[in-house]
Write a protein that binds this DNA or RNA. Structure first.
Length: 202
DNA sequence: TACGGGATCCACT
DNA sequence: GTGGATCCCGTAT
């Protein structure tokens, strides 16, 4: 079942936790790729020095974060990778959740092709274990790039659906790769599923 | 296993 | 002109 707008129209920290266990679906036109979300990070805009929208900054890049909840925010990082985020809260409030890691569910061979240019059974163990366990990696595997920035997740091309209702513990800790963010680097805004092998960093 | 540097580019200043 | 919400590979332990 596809998740609708009301799912995303919530407090960003709550949404970041609720997203764990949900399934991302991307219909590329060639294949259907699905992955379960196992790790997220919240970015709280105005008060959060780690967020692109810190202080209410509104530039061309971050304007997506001001859009409707349930919108994809995709940006280029370090010149070579894309990060996939989901806009939260309400229109006009620039908060979002970064998807940091997923567990491959369906279309695994397609993911291997997009990521390494090889079929899944041609990958070595290192490559199999590193298919989707990081924000740049999962974007590559799911074929998410800049053209999907501003994509509405309430449509049929890229969306989320309810996963299996399995139980898991949520670990709450600090975010990664934001050492420049002063006091904000210590905010406990990262969440992941305890024990899941696809989490990027324990 | 852990650390360090290089790749590569566009929005922002 | 600068630098980042990253990844990968080489080198060292």
């Amino acid at each position: 079942m596809k998740l609708d707008r009301s799912f995303y129209s919530r407090d960003t920290l709550i949404l970041a936790k609720e997203l764990l266990g949900k399934v991302i679906v991307h219909k590329t036109g060639e294949d259907i790729l699905k992955g379960k979300i196992v790790e997220t990070e919240a970015y709280l805009g105005v008060i959060d020095k780690a967020a692109h929208s810190y202080g209410g900054k509104k530039t061309k890049r971050v304007e997506t974060m001001y859009g409707l909840p349930g919108t994809a925010y995709v940006y280029l990082i370090y010149g070579m990778y894309y990060c996939f985020n989901i806009v939260a809260k309400e229109e006009g409030v620039p908060e979002a959740v970064l998807i940091r890691a997923i567990e491959p569910i369906e279309g695994v061979n397609g993911m291997a092709l997009y990521r390494y240019g090889k079929n899944y059974d041609e990958l070595n163990n290192y490559q199999k274990n590193n298919l989707t366990n990081g924000p740049g990696k999962l974007s590559m595997a799911l074929k998410i790039d800049k053209t999907l920035d501003k994509e509405d997740l309430c449509k049929d091309r890229l969306y989320l659906e309810e996963g299996q209702q399995d139980k898991f513990n949520i670990i709450e800790t600090t975010r990664i790769g934001i050492d420049y963010a002063e006091e904000a680097k210590d905010f406990p805004y990262r969440f992941y599923i305890e024990g899941n092998p696809y989490v990027s960093k324990l």
